[in-house]
Computed example of a mutant assay.
Amino acid sequence: MARPPRFETPQLLDAAVSLAAESGPAGVTMSAVAAAVGAPSGSLYHRFAGRSALLAEVWLRTVEGFQEGYFKALESSNDPRAGGRAAARHVVAWSRTHPREAALLLYGAHEFGRDDWSDEHLRRANEGNMRVRASLAALAGALGVHGTESLDRVSLAVVDAPLSLVRRHLRGGTPLPPHAEELAEECAEALLNF
C-alpha cells in the first residue's frame, strides 16, 4: 500500500501564499516553497510541472476562493443595491480575514506568470474573469442602467472603491480600520444610486 504524501498540496500552496505576501511573486520559487515547509524539492515537482504551474495554482486558488464569497454576496438579495453593498463589504471583510491572500491579489495575474500558464490554467482564469464581467453587467441591468458609463460606475462601486480602501492599508502596512466595511458599503450605496 502506498504511503500517504507527507506534504499535501494545500500546505505547499499556503507556504507559497505566505512567500508571495512577503516578497511578491518573485519570492515564490520551487526551492523557497520547499524550504518553507521543510520538504524536498521533489515534493513540489511531483505536484507542479514547474514554477509557472505553481504560480498559476497559487493565483487561481486565491482568486477562486475570493470569488466564491463575492458572488454569494452579490447574489444575496433580490434587491440589487443590497447585493452590491454586500459585495463591496465582502471585498473588505475577506481581505481582513485573509490578509496574506489579499496582499497577493494586489499583484496581477501577469505578475504571477500568466503568459506561461497552461491552457487549463488560462481556461480557469478566463472563466472567472468572464463571470465577474457578467455579474457586473447583470447588476447594472438589475439596476435598470446600461452602457459603458453605467458599467464603469457599477465596477467602481463594487470592485474598485473597496479594493482601493484595502490596497491603501495593505500597502501602507496598517490594519484595516474597524469601520472599513461600512465605508465600502456607503460608497457602494452612493454610487449605485442612479
Score class of each variant (00 low, 15 high):
126 N>H: 14
56 A>K: 12
181 E>M: 09
54 L>F: 03
20 A>I: 05
151 L>C: 01
36 A>E: 15
19 L>M: 03
22 E>Y: 00
41 S>G: 13
155 S>R: 15
169 H>V: 07
181 E>W: 08
125 A>Q: 04
142 A>M: 13
139 L>T: 06
36 A>H: 14
68 E>P: 05
14 D>V: 09
103 A>S: 14
179 H>R: 07
24 G>F: 12
96 R>N: 13
143 L>A: 08
16 A>G: 07
165 L>E: 00
50 G>N: 15
62 T>Q: 09
147 G>P: 12
98 H>I: 09
84 G>F: 07
124 R>K: 04
92 V>R: 02
14 D>A: 13
149 E>R: 10
171 R>F: 10
104 L>R: 01
122 L>P: 02
185 E>C: 13
133 R>V: 14
52 S>V: 09
138 A>E: 12
132 V>S: 10
114 R>Q: 15
79 D>R: 07
59 W>G: 09
19 L>I: 10
143 L>I: 12
50 G>S: 15
136 L>G: 04
129 N>F: 06
186 E>W: 02
22 E>D: 13
186 E>N: 10
48 F>V: 05
134 A>T: 12
44 L>H: 04
32 A>Q: 08
42 G>M: 06
92 V>N: 05
158 V>K: 05
155 S>T: 15
28 V>C: 09
69 G>V: 04
133 R>T: 07
19 L>Y: 04
128 G>T: 10
171 R>M: 09
194 F>C: 11
115 D>T: 07
101 E>S: 06
156 L>I: 03
77 S>F: 11
159 V>P: 00
65 G>K: 12
184 A>K: 11
7 F>S: 10
151 L>K: 00
129 N>M: 04
18 S>F: 01
118 S>K: 04
32 A>L: 04
61 R>S: 15
8 E>M: 12
87 A>V: 01
50 G>H: 08
91 V>Y: 02
13 L>I: 14
26 A>Y: 05
143 L>D: 09
60 L>K: 03
142 A>H: 15
66 F>M: 13
178 P>Y: 08
45 Y>R: 04
139 L>Q: 06
167 R>L: 11
152 D>Q: 10
163 L>D: 08
136 L>I: 02
77 S>C: 01
192 L>R: 05
35 A>H: 08
127 E>K: 06
190 A>M: 05
189 E>V: 00
135 S>Q: 07
83 G>T: 09
101 E>H: 06
167 R>S: 15
58 V>E: 03
42 G>E: 00
18 S>D: 11
64 E>G: 04
87 A>W: 02
80 P>F: 03
106 L>K: 14
92 V>S: 05
53 A>M: 07
112 F>T: 01
54 L>W: 02
